[in-house]
């Protein structure tokens, strides 16, 4: 949205856009510190922090020991007492080690204390499959955290959003969990220069259409857009919604689209069962948009298995463009 408003933009990768946001925050606000494993001279497991330690020093770009639980707790305690920490996990899978601090502490402290304190912590989670890293380094756990009141959980999908949502997360007084798909880090795009924020609670229509609503999250947005392009060649105009925020879910953008198309396809990489597709489906079914549905809702999610190592198996474990194409076509042409 900012890119269109005459603001100067620069081409950046998704990773560079995140670094740019952190650079701006470190420069503008003394309270901001980065914490994480190997984020200093190493530059981060995915080279997201890069050279920030050279510009802002090791006291503000803090290498932590390999202590996910402790690191998360330190970030929470620091956030409660005046700092605005950004904690990088090397892989989102390691959130499981820190669940105590994320779920029991960060999410609940404000509520448990009757609003006496806020926890303005930002945690970044490189997530998703496609790198051949197998079962313990490829998960998509956003729905786990999305289940916890007190957290905000987002999945930016473009360099512009990655920067804007990180700056918005830093502005936010509450814990914000950012899931970054590893395969997006090299994705290039025009990014506005300087400070701007992107809402943490708004989905966005990436492609307008009237035949079927495709709500996608994370990297699936790009796959869904690819599928929608192919469908358009057959005259089927799919509307692709980039969910962006898992918690809160932008109800109105989705319902409005479903009222228009009458058909809903949810696409997400995380395991299908008990995931965000179930939430969105139920949300639609419980709403007035139900009466506009002209076909059963369809979910495409990850297979009911850990992410496998073999590249063909790895692809088979998560939705691919062809799957989206088939499902959207069947829905749009009244065959489902």
């Amino acid at each position: 949205m900012n890119a269109a408003a005459g603001v100067r933009t620069r081409e950046m990768s998704y990773a560079e856009a995140i670094r740019d946001a952190m650079d701006i925050a470190l420069t503008e606000d003394e309270r901001v510190v980065l914490m994480g494993e190997d984020i200093g001279v190493y530059g981060g497991a995915f080279q997201v922090t890069g050279d920030l330690v050279e510009r802002h020093g090791p006291d503000r770009v803090i290498d932590t020991p390999i202590s996910e639980l402790g690191g998360a707790g330190v970030a929470v305690g620091a956030a409660m007492t005046g700092l605005r920490p950004i904690l990088e996990f090397q892989f989102s899978d390691f959130a499981t080690l820190a669940m105590e601090q994320i779920v029991n502490q960060a999410a609940k402290v404000r509520y448990m204390l009757g609003g006496a304190v806020s926890v303005p912590v930002v945690m970044r989670f490189p997530a998703g499959s496609g790198t051949g890293a197998a079962a313990q380094h490829s998960q998509s756990l956003e729905a786990w955290l999305g289940h916890v009141p007190g957290l905000k959980v987002v999945q930016p999908t473009t360099p512009e959003d990655a920067k804007g949502m990180l700056l918005a997360a830093l502005d936010d007084p509450d814990p914000v969990m950012i899931f970054e798909h590893k395969l997006l880090y090299k994705l290039k795009g025009q990014v506005p220069e300087g400070r701007y924020t992107t809402p943490l609670d708004k989905a966005v229509v990436r492609r307008a259409g009237d035949a079927v609503t495709v709500v996608a999250s994370g990297i699936m947005v790009h796959k869904a857009l690819e599928a929608a392009g192919q469908l358009a060649e057959d005259g089927i105009e799919a509307e692709v919604i980039d969910l962006r925020s898992v918690r809160p879910i932008d109800r109105e953008t989705i319902l409005e689209s479903v009222r228009k198309t009458g058909r809903l396809l949810c696409v997400y990489e995380a395991v299908k069962t008990l995931g965000i597709g179930a939430e969105i489906s139920a949300m639609v079914a419980e709403s007035d948009a139900f009466d506009f549905l002209d076909a059963p809702i369809v979910r495409l999610g990850g297979a009911e298995c850990p992410i496998p190592y073999n590249p063909d198996l790895e692809k088979a474990a998560v939705p691919q463009i062809a799957d989206i194409l088939d499902a959207a076509r069947a829905l749009a042409t009244g065959r489902r």
Partner: peptide
């Protein structure tokens, strides 16, 4: 479908009178 049910309700048509062409 829910849409069909709503449209039939609004048009005061009985669903049992309407042939379905879907799956």
């Amino acid at each position: 479908t829910p849409l069909a049910r709503r449209l039939a309700r609004e048009a005061d048509l009985r669903l049992s009178d309407i042939p379905g062409t879907g799956p």
